[in-house]
Design a protein around this nucleic acid. Structure first.
Lengths: 345, 345
DNA sequence: ATTTAGCACTCGCTAGTGGAGAGTGCTAAC
DNA sequence: GTTAGCACTCTCCACTAGCGAGTGCTAAAT
């Protein structure tokens, strides 16, 4: 069977309609609302064909048709009318960003809120990470007699701090000397090729302060495991309730439980292919738990350096056209913002 | 009318039963299940009295009674049998803490998860803050030619970082000198009595690098506004769905929207009275949005220094006895953990 | 050879009905 | 003061009937 233009028109009409109404679409609706110049009977025949080809589904006999994941895919790739964000909307977003501080976490948090508010879906935003994270500075800061803070600053603008306990003989002078040494050892080194060996050797040679070194090595190990610490920011989890397909309390709970699994969200975002905007529809998702949803992701960067990923999660019956344009714009805007922040010159 | 012992016994039985069943409790149920030695008819009379006194409510004629907020209050203050956590449960919690790192945020996050898992309610945990937050260290770290990071470390073990843009003439040597100066100015000062004046003067006197100083002053202002940045950690938001009174999708959405208002949760926790465990039932809550829920909070500290607050939010029909014992234990355990971490000697 | 009108049939949704069950309040007896 | 008995109330559930939307098929029209 061939997918001729008429079938495509009908499919488009059905999906457009279903996205708005959330009700199975019947042949008469299409015939009346969309002037395709054919009768409902003809549309009925075509719809039967489209179902056979896998683009439509019927919830039960004598109901209208709803799009399948395959149908949505075709729609997203070929059928939908692509939009550009309206100027007022674009300005609105930019305006919101102006209120941000320069704290990276603040900006990312803000982004998740803006995204969920504007799209009405649940937003997930991954904290930035450079491909090559370099250590810019390491410092041991004495807090009181028995504890100190190890602060590691990277070129992504993120500082991590870990408490370490210190033993009797360690004073702030000593900490200062160790800080200097750590800087010499690790400054401008990539997180990936940091070796703890020099520290371990040192521990062996210096008989005293053994406990302190243990603590230090532990803390450093934790601190440089940046990947582990990339926070995922969530916004608008309750938005899912706006959609009739998730009025069911069981489904709602399922969704919320998913959203609390930070590692799942992390893998979801990380796994999104390529640069720019990417759409994953229902069963296309590699995670079973998410195969009832559609996910749209977009990358953001500083200059040409990819930094992180933002995404929205909603029902497969998503307003793809609007959502994609928003994601595109947000990725772009955030990139601009961060590029300016990190500007090399 | 007098609240004699028999009335109290009946009230206790009703509340105990209702907390488990979530169904209005009838006189026959009480007569059969709890051996009070009186017939259902007598209980009926007493129940009518208790209703008149405001301790019970009737959803509709010919239904059983449910406790009012006032009833729960009496229950919590006088009637319920107080429990202590069983040893296995206590050990279980301690075991979970052993997996934590020494990163404060990690510990607090962990706490919110443990709390929500064990109680089956939604947990909120406020990041620590000392009464007197002292700056232990300030450092400007060059990231690249045009931007640097201002890192402020406090004695609470929290580092905050803010990006600042730097102008042409500023090199890492210069940043280093400024860092030293900042440390001299602000080290061991309380956040409350930090004055930006010296910096502003400096900016006036040093004609060049005006832009850099602007940026620095802004960043410092943001960094020392610690109160603004106290993160509230949430756990188990979906737990609310476990309870029949929140099966309604509209109520559920309301709840989730509340939980996204970090500032509300912040004020809720901060406003909890006194030291130790505190229970707020329904309408007792000063925030209208939360008058359908009960909140139990507990403080945690390091030594004698109060640090922060943890809380759980659930239906007014809460397992107060169990919840209170868990909160008590968790506050204690977290305090011990942090006390050891910050131990002065 | 398509396209369309007509029609019988299917299925979900809704409103209405009628017990069953749980619980109350009252009265009168204990 | 307590209790048994009873009439009454109200919710909940299952059942039914009818409506409406939509389909697929057939036969006529283009």
């Amino acid at each position: 069977m061939k997918l001729d233009q008429r079938k495509l028109n009908i499919l488009q009409a059905i999906i457009d309609d279903y996205i708005i109404s959330a009700e199975p679409v019947g042949s008469r609706t299409i015939a009346k609302k969309y002037n395709l110049g054919i009768s409902s009977a003809t549309i009925r025949n075509e719809m039967a064909d489209l179902e056979e080809m896998g683009y439509l589904e019927q919830p039960h006999t004598s109901a209208g048709r709803i799009p399948s994941d395959k149908g949505y895919r075709l729609y997203v790739d070929c059928l939908m009318t692509t939009r550009v964000l309206s100027l007022p909307q674009a300005n609105y977003i930019k305006e919101l960003y102006k209120k941000s501080t320069n704290q990276i976490e603040q900006i990312i948090f803000q982004t998740s809120r803006i995204l969920s508010t504007i799209t009405n879906y649940t937003a997930v935003v991954l904290e930035p990470k450079l491909n090559e994270v370099l250590i810019k500075h390491i410092q041991l800061v004495p807090i009181d007699r028995r504890c100190a803070l190890l602060v590691v600053v990277t070129n992504t603008g993120i500082a991590r701090d870990t408490i370490i306990r210190i033993s009797e003989g360690v004073d702030s002078d000593y900490l200062y000397r160790i800080s200097n040494m750590l800087n010499q050892l690790y400054k401008d080194k990539s997180l990936d090729d940091i070796s703890l060996e020099p520290l371990i050797n040192m521990q062996k040679n210096v008989a005293k302060n053994r406990e302190f070194f243990n603590s230090l090595i532990d803390a450093l190990t934790v601190s440089i495991d940046i990947e582990d610490a990339r926070e995922v920011y969530l916004g608008g989890t309750s938005n899912i309730f706006n959609y009739p397909e998730y009025q069911d309390i069981i489904k709602a709970k399922e969704f919320l439980d998913l959203m609390e699994q930070k590692d799942l969200l992390y893998r979801l975002l990380i796994g999104s292919r390529g640069n720019g905007v990417s759409v994953t529809i229902g069963q296309e998702n590699e995670y079973k738990e998410l195969q009832d949803y559609s996910v749209i992701t977009a990358t953001y960067n500083a200059g040409s350096q990819p930094l992180g990923i933002l995404g929205i999660i909603g029902p497969t019956r998503m307003e793809y056209s609007k959502a994609i344009s928003v994601m595109d714009f947000m990725g772009e805007t955030l990139s601009q913002y961060l590029t300016r922040l990190f500007a090399k010159e």
